[in-house]
Amino acid sequence: MDDLTLGPDELGPDGLGYDPDEAPDDVDVAVLAAVARIANLVDPVPAGLVERAQFAATLASLECELMELSYIEAPLTGVRGSDSLSGMAGDAAPVEARTITFTHDTLTVMISLSGADGGRVRVDGWAAPSGALTVELLRPGAEALSVESDEDGRFAFESVDRGPASLVVRRSEAEGAGAVSTPVIEL
């Protein structure tokens, strides 16, 4: 603690009142702790960053080939944005029905999103060519949901939370094709 009494006149040749080569003392430790605390006050880590990062890592770990987002059903002509809809329904606006198509080589997956009870989302999907598929729905910070398609390639998730998600489509071994995943979409 004697160090603290050093004045500017007693600074070393390089203007430092403290020897950089000394071992850190209690004050050093306390100052560093205060720096960490203040840095997190001034520039806090965004909420949900950890979950988003975990989700990004999960998707990367699947080593799936990424499907292409090839078609999004365009807004109806004359309706600009969703203001007119959400304005009527307030905060609990129902999810607008919309259709998204993904493609990868010969596989095409179309999903239709519509509102479900409690502000949740219903996902109806259809894959072509038809055949048995396993479809997984992944979301940040949540357990994966998995459904099997019927023989026509239809599948559905009846009620899932809104938010970012990705679908992973696994074709049966007989089809000789690996799993593919969709880009992250906002349900």
Partner: peptide, 28 residues
């Protein structure tokens, strides 16, 4: 995606198989 909407519901309802244990293990 957020601003797209459609009245189309060409993918009709269909029977949903029970949810099985996910083959994918998220890191969360």
């Amino acid at each position: 995606l957020g601003t797209s909407r459609t009245a189309l519901d060409s993918v009709g309802p269909n029977p949903v198989r029970p949810v099985t244990a996910g083959a994918v293990h998220p890191l969360g």
